[in-house]
């Protein structure tokens, strides 16, 4: 009865407002759905593929890190439990891991000479934060045509779609569609959120996506993988996305393992309580 009332009211309003019919297109931000990628770390039992995260670190180190910082990451994190270079021998103190020591040693870290106070560069240590490519934000912008390369520490959590979004952006660069005016220093990417309506020639269909200031960073063969994995654009993108997924959530494996035990405990506990409940209430009519 009530629903019928609503329907009648809506119909009445529709008839009254009929002459005002307007089918205007709404300008809005759009982006393509991230590509469907399968990850080893999906699901309640999924774990990171260590070799993949190692390759991903190499992509970050050799390509991304020339512009993008990762301020929440320390080299020691690479050797901690769940990390790509974890070695049970150094579980107690990942700073002792020789692999990470040598990885960090290859990187120059800006520091201050503790005797003179002069600015110096020294080889990195596992306890150092990932080296920041720029001393400050204006320097980062000045080197990138005014755009600020975002910190990548939690990038895989800071965008809808997570690692699939990262993969889609890196592999998603396409030639701009006909009729699109691309400003200097910008690149069209259908997976980047944006509103293309004002960049299209009149009457052209407005495509999904937006402009990104980062030129396509990866190409086939850009990074040489030590384990023989073919260095295609797709492989590089997938591996670096997996690395960023690990970096954004380095305790994911510990969380899932702990959770597995907690779930079993709670399930048994619930069953026991249920039968206790049935037994205690056996003689009460309710």
């Amino acid at each position: 009865m009530l629903r019928k009332g609503f329907a009648l009211a809506a119909l009445g309003l529709a008839l009254l407002a009929g002459p005002l019919f307007a089918g205007q297109a709404l300008a809005a931000t759009t982006e393509a759905e991230p590509k469907d990628v399968h990850w080893s770390f999906e699901g309640p039992l999924g774990k990171f593929d260590k070799a993949q995260v190692q390759r991903g670190y190499k992509v970050y180190r050799e390509v991304c890190s020339s512009c993008h910082s990762m301020n929440l990451m320390y080299y020691r994190n690479l050797a901690q439990k769940g990390g790509p270079f974890f070695d049970p021998k150094y579980a107690e103190n990942p700073n002792d891991s020789p692999v990470v020591k040598s990885l960090a040693h290859d990187i120059q870290i800006k520091d201050i000479d503790s005797d003179t106070g002069d600015a110096i560069s020294r080889p990195g240590m596992p306890s150092d934060r990932f080296a920041n490519p720029f001393p400050n934000e204006p320097a980062a912008r000045a080197s990138n045509g005014g755009a600020l390369p975002p910190d990548l520490s939690v990038m895989a959590k800071a965008r809808e779609g997570g690692p699939a979004y990262v993969y889609s952006i890196l592999t998603g660069y396409t030639a701009p569609p006909k009729g699109m005016t691309v400003p200097a220093g910008k690149y069209y990417n259908p997976y980047m959120p944006g509103d293309m309506s004002s960049f299209m020639a009149k009457g052209m269909k407005v495509p999904e996506g937006g402009f990104i200031s980062m030129p396509p960073p990866l190409v086939d063969g850009k990074v040489t993988f030590d384990d023989g994995t073919k260095s295609t654009l797709q492989n590089q993108a997938r591996d670096v996305a997996a690395f960023l997924a690990w970096a954004a959530d380095p305790k994911a494996e510990e969380r899932k393992t702990f959770g597995f035990g907690a779930m079993i405990y709670l399930l048994i506990f619930s069953v026991l309580l249920y039968f206790s409940y049935k037994r205690i209430w056996k003689n009460v009519a309710h």
Binding site: P44, R255, K256, F258, G259, F260, A262, M263, L266, L267, F269, S270, L273, Y274, S276, Y277, I280, W281
Partner: peptide
């Protein structure tokens, strides 16, 4: 106490699904 306890335990399972997974 036992009926609430059972319900709490079931509720904790839901809570744990979010916290851990």
């Amino acid at each position: 106490t036992v009926k609430d306890g059972f319900a709490i335990s079931v509720f904790l399972i839901l809570y744990a699904v979010f916290v851990f997974y």
